[in-house]
């Protein structure tokens, strides 16, 4: 019954709910804390496991704090709500109630970057990965296809570490389940790294470009070895980092990976210089941030010469 729904997930969020609902049946250490968001989707699970599926209402500081407390009790907490209310509003709770307490948990956010384009700035959190990245010991998954969610999430639920799983309604045409930087295409003029849902735009932008394309659905830890291996096959150490969240979020990691190598780095992503005060669609927001295929191609041509 549950397995059949896993075979054809229609969205990352559905995959997340189905997998956690199934895991609650077999993993007595698993607990889910919610703050209204998705509570309707967990109703069946909550009816079966009222002690381990907990909707705390619209209380996001408590959501994360209680998640830390559940971890201290020996359970594996899944803490879930919309990205800005999961990462930004209760950020100190993440810092202290998980990291400083030295406990693990799985934070699952929906609405990554500009999924909520027409909802406005209040429902956008393009700084989420940068914020999580300011804290030690986090694995950060940025799946680009619903089929990538299951292996990432099952591994996260089975672990003891701290995981941020960033779900989006933006998806690529094809799934690329795997770890580290996956080699999608090879070329000679440089290496383009696409993180999560920006892969299709990168592939379209580089269709006729002589570049290597790497894909990552896990961006922390940063796959230094994978980047170095890809660079060994190109003529110059020119790296383009394309991320669906704040521009340059992984630039420090790339620079560190290449600290021994003369290199150039171009970072593309959500612009930092001003708040995009617009509604519309995710595609329009991608274009406004320079994350559409045409603008990526133009940036590549300028950068690679």
């Amino acid at each position: 019954m549950i397995a059949s729904t896993l075979t054809t997930p229609t969205a990352m969020r559905d995959a997340f709910v189905d997998i956690v609902t199934a895991e609650l049946e077999v993993n007595p250490q698993l607990a889910v804390v919610l703050a209204e968001i998705s509570a309707d989707r967990f109703e069946r699970a909550a009816a079966r496991h009222p002690d381990r599926v907990l909707n705390l209402g619209i209380r996001e500081q408590l959501l994360v704090g209680a998640g830390g407390g559940l971890a201290l009790s020996g359970l594996r907490p899944v803490v879930h709500t919309y990205a800005p209310f999961l990462v930004e509003r209760p950020f100190e709770q993440i810092k202290l109630d998980f990291v400083h307490q030295d406990v693990g948990g799985v934070l699952v956010g929906i609405g990554g970057s500009f999924d909520g384009a027409n909802l406005g700035r209040t429902h956008q959190a393009p700084g989420d990965v940068a914020l999580i990245d300011s804290l030690p010991g986090w694995t950060v998954h940025v799946p680009g296809h619903p089929a990538e969610v299951e292996p990432l999430l099952r591994a996260a639920l089975a672990g003891q570490d701290r995981v941020y799983l960033r779900l989006s309604t933006e998806t690529n045409r094809d799934a690329h389940p795997g770890t580290g930087f996956q080699l999608i295409r090879t070329g000679r003029r440089g290496v383009v790294i696409a993180v999560g849902p920006v892969l299709d735009a990168v592939l379209d932008a580089t269709a006729t470009a002589d570049v290597t394309v790497l894909y990552a659905s896990t961006i922390r830890p940063f796959d230094t070895a994978g980047l170095c291996a890809a660079l060994s096959g190109v003529d110059r150490a020119d790296v383009v980092l394309v991320e669906p969240y704040l521009r340059g979020t992984s630039a420090h990691q790339a620079n560190e990976a290449l600290s021994e190598v003369p290199h150039r780095l171009l970072s593309l992503g959500v612009r930092r210089d001003e708040e995009l005060r617009a509604y519309g669609t995710p595609a329009e927001h991608a274009a406004a941030h320079g994350l559409d295929a045409r603008t990526i191609r133009a940036a590549l041509d300028t950068f690679l010469g």
Binding site: D51, Q61, G68, G69, L72, P77, E92
Partner: peptide, 20 residues
């Protein structure tokens, strides 16, 4: 040390212990 963290953690801890 940062105020307002212990009670929310305590709620989660109590919920987790109760579940177990």
């Amino acid at each position: 040390g940062s105020l307002g963290h212990g009670l929310p953690i305590g709620v989660g801890l109590a919920l987790g212990l109760r579940a177990q």
